[in-house]
Amino acid sequence: MALAILCSGGDAPGMNAALKKFVDHVYKCGQTPWFIYDGLEGMIDGTIRQAYHKDVAGILHNGGTIIGSSRSKRFYDPVYRRQAFENLQKYGIDGVVVLGGDGSYNAFEVLSREHPVNFVGIPGTIDNDIYGTEYCLGVDTALNVIRHAVDNIRDTASSFKRAFVVETMGRECGYLAAVTAITSGAEICAIPEICFNKDAAQEQLKKEISGGRRYVLAIVAEGTKMTEEIR
C-alpha cells in the first residue's frame, strides 16, 4: 500500500513533527510513504515523490513544513481536480493524509465525492476550530507566542497608565483569545461565541480606574470584528 501526505493552507507549528512520524510509522507498517509537495497545487502538478527516513532526519525543531504548502484556486475547477486524481493514480497512491484545516478537508471531501479517493485528516491549524478534536497542531505554540507578547505589553501598559487592545487570530473560534485572557489576567475578553456587552464592560472599568487601576488589557478574537469598536 502506498500512502501520501500533504500540507495544505497555512503552515502551523508541529507539521514537520507530523511528517516525520508519518514516514516512520508507514515504513514500520511495511508500506510506502510518499510526499506531495506544495499542497493541492503540487497534487495538480504531480510533484509527488517517495519519502525516505533521510528526508525527515533532524526536522523536528524546524518551523514551517519541509514539503511546502499552498492555497489553490485551481482546485475549485473540476478539470484540475481530475488532474490531481490522475496524478494520485499515476503514482499508485491508495490514500492521502491531509495535514491542514477545515478548508483543506472541504477540498478533499469534494474530490472524494467525484473520484474514489481515500483520505484522513490531521488537524493542523492555530485556529483550533476543527470539529472532533480538542487540540490542533500549532495551537500550543501560538498560545505561548501570544502570552509572551501580552506579558511584554503589560509592562508598558502599567508603566504609562495605558489601555492596550490585542487582537488574536482564530477566525470564528475564540479559543486563543479566551485562554490568553484567562492566563494573562486581562480585564476584557471578546470572543465570537459569547455576546460582548461593551456598555457593561465600560462601566466596570470606570469603577476600577477610579479605584486606582493603572492599566487595561483587552484581548479580542478577530472573529468578533470588534477590535476597532473596543479600542
Rank of each mutant, 00 (worst) to 15 (best):
T133E: 03
F160V: 12
V120T: 14
V79A: 14
P123V: 05
Y80N: 09
R74K: 14
P116W: 06
R147V: 15
L111P: 00
G132W: 14
E167H: 04
T183V: 08
N106C: 11
V150T: 13
E187G: 07
N106F: 10
A181C: 10
S104T: 07
E167P: 03
G138N: 05
R74F: 10
A157S: 12
V79P: 04
A186L: 02
A163E: 13
F108Q: 00
A142R: 05
E134Y: 10
V96K: 05
F160Q: 13
S159R: 07
V179D: 01
V120I: 14
A149D: 13
Y80E: 11
N128A: 15
E109R: 09
V165A: 12
F164K: 02
R74N: 09
T168H: 09
R171I: 13
S72W: 10
Y131I: 15
K73Q: 08
S159W: 08
R171N: 11
T168L: 05
Q89T: 06
I182F: 15
G103Y: 02
F164Q: 06
G101V: 03
D129S: 03
A157V: 15
A163C: 09
D155T: 09
V98C: 02
N144F: 06
F164P: 05
D127K: 03
C136L: 11
I153W: 05
P123F: 06
D129V: 07
